[in-house]
Design a protein around this nucleic acid. Structure first.
Lengths: 196, 196
DNA sequence: TTACAAAACTAACGATTATTAGTTTTTTTA
DNA sequence: TAAAAAAACTAATAATCGTTAGTTTTGTAA
């Protein structure tokens, strides 16, 4: 009956993934049904399988894509930013940008990765762990160079990553606080707490 | 066949809730089945209903209990701690304590509340919103008194609550960082970033 | 020991799930 | 316009879900 609308340059498969991200965010992966996903696209559930292989594949696409984007950015930051503080600031700002521009997918990757199947689950967790370790290394170098206080690198990275992750709560309160204020205040709060 | 073990002073219902919290944490509420929960107790699924009314009730118990504990603590802190900084520090330390002593239940309340049914869903969200507002008020008073920098109270509370919430990730890495180091470093990081 | 209550069981219900098979309609290509 | 391919459909499958009903076993109190 209805035909899937693929706006702009988006593949129809990409449209399905996009809608899946929204649905997974609202209902959670397990509670979200393929029938409901099909509904949001104006088609019947079995028609989805013309575009995708399985429900699980949708989650995979979302999680892998997000993991890769964060890793790719860290590569750039690590090679371009000069001081430790500049690197950390760049990472924080990128997380904020991602949360704003890819909210649903970042949210799903953060919340629903546990439903990934092996071996992708291990891949995802390894990549995240690696990301954390690289950030810890940046902090440790900053401590050595006396750019930062004598802080524990794990706790520092944990605090920063957790704080920026919490931006998902801000998303519902956009009216009260502008992105500008949010970004600057959070960067200042997190950096002032560790700069020497 | 098997009989539910109710250790110490715990009601059998409380044992069921405790096991449910663990299961919900690992699999998520929707993906966790009553048969699996019964398995962890060594009984058959229908036997659960001798103790509880429904699966949904289990989630309710967990979420409401946690919300009340945090609210109760804030009441105490608000009445006893003197300075703004002391209040914020007390709140941060309480969150850390809760994460350590009630990890599964805190985790479930943080992650699975969306599966609550109305009107409990609204109650839960209102209570959380109220908690945030009270913290914002504490920050605003601190700014007025020049105890704190001239910061946005919403962003500050968001940053702090998100950071302590991220302790759930630390839980898997206990070996590398002691609770002492974690607690002090995080408190310092978060307070130094805003103290005037 | 007998009676009662608590707590377990088996069997089964209706609902929902992701997915497959096979078919028809629509769109694109030649 | 005819043929081929893409994209929708209907119908149905096996599996799993929370939960109920009814029954049997176990534990406790008289």
């Amino acid at each position: 009956m209805a035909k899937i609308q693929s706006g702009k340059n988006a593949t129809k498969k990409e449209v399905v993934i996009e809608k899946a991200a929204l649905l997974f965010k609202v209902k959670g992966y397990s509670a979200a049904s393929m029938r409901e996903l099909a509904d949001t696209l104006g088609i019947e559930a079995p028609s989805l399988y013309n575009y995708i292989g399985s429900k699980s594949e949708l989650l995979q696409s979302i999680c892998i894509k997000m993991a890769n984007e964060f890793t790719a950015n860290l590569n750039i930051v690590d090679n371009t930013a000069e001081s430790t503080v500049a690197k950390i600031e760049a990472v924080i700002r990128f997380h904020i940008q991602m949360m704003i521009n890819n909210f649903n997918e970042v949210f799903v990757a953060n919340h629903e990765w546990k439903h990934l199947k092996e071996p992708l689950l291990s891949d995802f967790l390894n990549q995240r762990r690696n990301y954390e370790k690289r950030l810890m290394l940046i902090v440790e170098i900053g401590v050595e160079k006396k750019e930062l206080k004598n802080i524990n690198s794990y706790v520092t990275v944990l605090t920063i990553l957790s704080a920026v992750r919490g931006l998902e709560f801000w998303y519902g309160h956009k009216k009260n606080v502008t992105q500008q204020v949010l970004e600057n205040d959070m960067v200042n709060h997190l950096l002032n707490g560790i700069i020497n």
